[in-house]
C-alpha cells in the first residue's frame, strides 16, 4: 500500500466520509517515519498558543513523546516519576523534548492549552514544549499508535529511534525498574557518537485517540 501524504489525509478528513476514512486509516497507521531517514517535518501549535516547527530545532536532538494523561500506561510512567526523570535528564543535556497530544476533541486525553499546561505542572513534567495536535496530523505523519510512543531525531534531522519508552510492556509500575529505558539508552548512545542499539521497538500502551 502506497504511503499517504499529509494533503491526502487532510482531504480525507475534510471529506469526512466513513468509507474513505477507513481506507485512508489503513495506510495512516504506518506513517512516514523511518529510522535512518530524515524525520518528517511538521508545524503545529504549542499549549501556550505559539506556532512551532520541527525545522527550528535543527542542530539539536529532539524527542517526541505522544501522551494522553488519562491513559493507564501514561499514568504508569508519570505516576512512578519515570517519564519526568527521563525528560529532566534529557533536557539537562540540551535535548529538546516535545510532548504531543493527538487526542481528538471528545476523545480521551483531549485537552486545551491551559489544561495541558496545568497537567504538566501538576505532574512535574519537563517538556520543552507541549504540542496540541487535535486533528492528529502530526501523529498520522509519524504513525504514532500508542501513548506513550517515542521518537528521537538527531541534530541533522534524521530519525534515530522509534518505539516504546521501555522494554517491558505492562501497566505495572513495579516493572519499570526491571525494564530497559530505550529512550535514555538511545540518547546516551547518540551523545557518545554510537549507533542506537535498538532503533525500532514495540511501542506499547493505549491507542492514540485519533478522530474516528
Amino acid at each position: 500500500m502506497r504511503p499517504v501524504n499529509r494533503r491526502t489525509l487532510l482531504g480525507v478528513a475534510i471529506a469526512a466520509s466513513a468509507a474513505l476514512a477507513f481506507a485512508g486509516g489503513a495506510a495512516q497507521a504506518a506513517g512516514d517515519a523511518k529510522v535512518g531517514k530524515p524525520a518528517p517535518g511538521f508545524t503545529g501549535t504549542t499549549a501556550t498558543g505559539k506556532p512551532i516547527a520541527l525545522d527550528a530545532y535543527r542542530g539539536k536532538t529532539v524527542v517526541l513523546e505522544w501522551t494522553n494523561h488519562e491513559c493507564p500506561y501514561v499514568r504508569k510512567h508519570y505516576g512512578a516519576d519515570n517519564m519526568q526523570k527521563t525528560q529532566k535528564s534529557a533536557v539537562d543535556k540540551g535535548v529538546v523534548w516535545l510532548s504531543v497530544i493527538s487526542s481528538a476533541p471528545g476523545e480521551e486525553g483531549h485537552v486545551d492549552g491551559a489544561e495541558a499546561l496545568k497537567i504538566a505542572q501538576e505532574r512535574g513534567a519537563h517538556p520543552t514544549e507541549i504540542i496540541l495536535d487535535p486533528e492528529g496530523t502530526i501523529g498520522q505523519t509519524y504513525g504514532a499508535r500508542t501513548t506513550p510512543h517515542m521518537y528521537i531525531i538527531d541534530p541533522d534531522g534524521v530519525l534515530k529511534y522509534m518505539g516504546g519508552i521501555d522494554s517491558i510492556a505492562s501497566s505495572r509500575k513495579s516493572d519499570i525498574e526491571k525494564a530497559t529505558n530505550y529512550v535514555t539508552v538511545a540518547l546516551n548512545e547518540m551523545a557518545a557518537g554510537k549507533p542506537v542499539s535498538n532503533p525500532v521497538t514495540r511501542a506499547y500502551g493505549c491507542s492514540v485517540k485519533y478522530a474516528w
Binding site: 486509516g25 489503513a26 474516528w212
Partner: peptide, 8 residues
C-alpha cells in the same frame, strides 16, 4: 479490531 485507523 479496527479503531480510528489502528488495528488490534
Amino acid at each position: 479490531i479496527e479503531f480510528a485507523g489502528l488495528v488490534n
